[in-house]
Amino acid sequence: MTRLLKTKKFIFGASFLLILLTLSILNTVFNDGEIRKAPLFYNEDGALEKAPPYPPFDVFLFGSDMYGYDMLHTVIEGAKYSIGIVIVVAFFRMALSILLSYFLFRVPERIFNLIKAISEPLSFFPQTLISYFLLSTVIIYTIDGFHHPFWVRALYEFIILILIALPALTVQLIEQKRRVWKEEFIESAITLGGSKRHIYFKHVLPQLYEEWILMFGQQFLQVLTLLVHLGVMIILFGGTIIGDGDPPTSVTHEWSGLIGVNKRFMLAHEWIVYVPILFFTLTALSVA
C-alpha cells in the first residue's frame, strides 16, 4: 500500500476523482445543485441571434446542451452520483465476496466444485441484460408515476449491481485463498501449531491484499462500463422519466444518463455526448 501511494499514476488518479467529487458536493451544498444556463441572445433589433445548443468555446468551455445548460457544470454536478455509485458498488462487491470466501474457501473439494459449477455460467451471461430485466420495471417512469420513492429505487439498483457479480467474484477469491493455503509456509505454520484463524489473518491475507486492490480497480471499471451500457438502454440511476413525445430525462445528472438521453445528438451536436464520454474515459484511466 505504501508503494502504491508513492506512484505518480495513483496520486494523479486519486486526485482527479477527489477533485471531481469535491466540486460536485460543493455545488450541491452551496448552489443547491443548480447548473449554469445560458440565455437566448438577441441582436439590437430584437431578432434572435443565437440559441442553444451552444458549441464548445462559444458561451461555455465545453458547450451547452439543448436547453442551454453548461455541459461542464452538468458533468460536475453528476460526478457525485457517477463516481459515488461506482465506488460504493465496487466496495461492497469486494467486501461481501471477501466475507463469503472466508467461510467457504476451506469447504470440501466436492462442495467447492458444485459452487463453481453454479457460478461459472452466470459469469458468461452479460451483466447488462440481467440488470436491464431486473431494473426496468422499477426504474422507468410509468403513466402513474414512479411506484417507489427515490431512495427505494436507488437502494434496489445498488443491490442488483452488487449481487450480480458476487458468485463469480467469490469463487475467484476462494481460488486465490485455496492456492495460498497450499503453500509450504502455510503447512509449516500448521505444523508449528498455529490456529486456523491465526494462519488466515497473519499468513494468508498478507499474500492477497495487493491482488485485492487490483481487483477493486477491475470491479470499478466493470461497474463503470455496466452503467454506460444501462445508460444507452435508458436505464438511468434513480429513475428514467419518459413522457408522451418527449425525450427521456434523468432524475439525476449521472453521466451514463447524460449519454443515454443525449445519444440522439451524436451526429448533429456531438459535444453533448462527447463531454460525459470524455469524463467517463478519464475516470476509467484514473484507476486503470
Rank of each mutant, 00 (worst) to 15 (best):
T191P: 00
I235A: 01
T170D: 11
K196P: 06
P167K: 15
Q172V: 10
D246E: 08
G217Q: 10
P149E: 09
F216I: 05
Q222W: 02
V251R: 05
M215E: 02
Q218A: 09
P167W: 10
F237A: 11
I235M: 03
H148Y: 13
I160W: 03
G231L: 02
K177Y: 13
D244V: 05
L226T: 02
F280H: 02
I140L: 08
G239E: 04
Q176R: 15
Q219C: 07
T240S: 07
D244N: 11
Q218R: 05
R179M: 13
I162T: 13
E175A: 00
G260T: 06
S256H: 08
F146D: 06
G194K: 07
E183T: 07
Q176M: 15
V273A: 00
L173S: 01
L227F: 12
M266K: 05
P276W: 05
V171E: 12
E183P: 09
T225D: 15
Q219V: 02
D246V: 12
I277A: 14
F280R: 07
F280K: 06
T252Q: 01
S250M: 00
Q219E: 08
I241N: 08
I174G: 01
I162D: 08
A154P: 01
L214G: 05
I139M: 11
G239S: 14
V138C: 14
I139D: 06
I160G: 09
Q218M: 04
E175L: 05
I199Y: 10
I186E: 12
I186T: 14
V171R: 04
L278T: 09
S256Y: 07
I213H: 10
I159F: 15
Y274I: 04
L173N: 03
I199V: 15
F146H: 12
F216V: 06
I234C: 03
G194N: 08
D246R: 10
S188T: 15
F279D: 09
V228N: 01
L230E: 00
G238H: 08
F201M: 13
I160M: 08
P276Q: 08
G257P: 05
F158H: 10
K263G: 08
T249V: 14
L226C: 04
I272L: 05
H203N: 14
P167A: 14
L227S: 13
S195P: 02
V180R: 14
Y200F: 15
D244K: 05
P276G: 14
R264Q: 07
M266C: 01
G231S: 02
H203D: 14
G238S: 04
F265N: 05
H229Q: 11
I186G: 03
L205F: 12
L226I: 09
K202G: 13
Y200Q: 08
G260V: 12
L169S: 03
L230G: 06
Q218G: 11
Q219R: 07
E211P: 00
W151I: 12
V138Q: 13
S195Q: 10
L169H: 00
V204Q: 01
I272Y: 03
V138D: 07
S250A: 09
H253Q: 04
T240R: 03
